[in-house]
Nucleic acid binder design. Structure first.
Lengths: 239, 239
DNA sequence: TTATATTTGTGCGTATGTATA
DNA sequence: CTATACATACGCACAAATATA
């Protein structure tokens, strides 16, 4: 535990304890004793005590003399299952009430090289670009940008605005089945515009999921880039 | 700049300079002078010099006497494909040279409720807990914590330490095939300990992937929690 | 109830690391 | 380079609160 990295030992111990909390997410759970933690991390008990003091100051744990130190409960994240047939409304409605998608902005633009390649169109072909916000229980969870071929889905924007659901909007175009081909997952700091829509602080984190949906014939028909508020949701990939 | 957070000033200055490098991603770019950096961060010039020395030691910058200090170029994000049969070594070795896993820390502990449930063991059963670091092309990409049943994989730690690969360590126990059942993906700010291992700034982001690997009979045998440096890698789920 | 072990809380001395002037 | 101030980390000892036999 002696690395000259400019980070104090009690800070690393505090983080180790934080990890324990993340791993064994028991509310009201009992931490190992200070002596046990000192041995586990290879530091003096005073160092453990300083780490615990820092965690207590930020409210993660509380200690009771003679009894021990206990975790406090962390606000849980919603689960967002992602499989081959992901539908926002269906996913979230099992965990929260009133799932809702709201249209923020829509436009028609020429496809750039990347969009054209993803959707199998010519560069410059007209595509709908739709910006949507997804809310559950009054809490914004994600904002998403989607691209659709104008030729194939001329009225997709109106249909989404009316139903608040991509799958229902696609049904209106006669497409009742589609599935997700690929999802790329990254994470970034939130952009100012997204922070406003998600009602989160300027230094918040978003999980960025880029995906491609294809119809039953394997033809790509929707490309999307969704930014999830990372403190409110986690993605679950079942394989 | 005087906060009692257990992080040395030269470390914060070093992280600040790293951020400068990320923003103005010009290869061979010139840093502000040491005096200018000292004033910008509100520290003594000696502290700036120590920060630069640390960055030079890890290869991010190089200094030329009388001329100044210069950035080196940063690489783009690697892709990390995740499917039912993910292997770190195989994935990364197609894009980078010398993939390597290094054992950071290992211990045997009793399984808490969560680990026991995940691995199908009794609460309190002995499990190996293994902390590993994964590097490609000399750049740390992820740190991972894994849990294995001690009864089933008594020598897993030694086997990993020798081979630097989980799949090879499992082969040594006669398990040649396994697959990933579920992956949960979240994103957080990096913990100080992980930041030290990943050599990234204190305000960096990690993608947290929790997964469960099962053997051909469907029996869970490895639970892991991997933190990826979000600025170096993106996860790709093929469905 | 008492007795004992466990756990947290406190004090003090010493050595080393960090940051400034 | 030295000098100074402060933070960090350790080791030991003991007191106070709690749990348990």
């Amino acid at each position: 535990m002696n690395v000259d990295d400019g980070i104090a030992r009690w800070r690393r111990v505090a983080d180790g304890i934080r990890t324990l909390a993340a791993e064994s997410d028991a509310d009201g759970g009992l931490l190992p004793s200070e002596a046990a933690l000192a041995e586990r991390f290879g530091v003096n008990r005073h160092t453990v005590r300083r780490a615990i003091a820092a965690l207590a100051a930020e409210g993660l744990v509380h200690t009771e003399r003679g009894r021990g130190t206990f975790f406090r409960k962390l606000p849980g994240r919603l689960h967002y299952p992602i499989g081959t047939r992901t539908r926002f409304s269906e996913n979230i409605s099992r965990q929260a009430r009133e799932p809702a998608g709201r249209l923020i902005q829509a436009s028609v633009e020429p496809a750039d090289a990347r969009i054209a390649a993803a959707l199998g169109l010519r560069i410059g072909a007209a595509v709908h670009r739709m910006e949507t916000l997804h809310v559950a229980d009054g809490m914004p969870l994600s904002v998403s940008t989607s691209w659709f071929s104008v030729e194939r889905f001329p009225a997709i924007v109106a249909a989404y605005a009316e139903t608040g659901s991509v799958s229902k909007a696609l049904e209106a175009h006669g497409l009742v089945d589609y599935h997700r081909r690929e999802t790329r997952v990254a994470a970034e700091h939130v952009s100012p515009a997204d922070a406003a829509h998600l009602a989160c602080p300027a230094d918040a984190i978003v999980i960025v999921a880029e995906s491609l949906n294809v119809d039953p014939e394997g033809q790509p028909m929707q490309r999307s880039r969704t930014r999830f508020a990372a403190d409110r949701i986690e993605l679950v990939f079942a394989t």
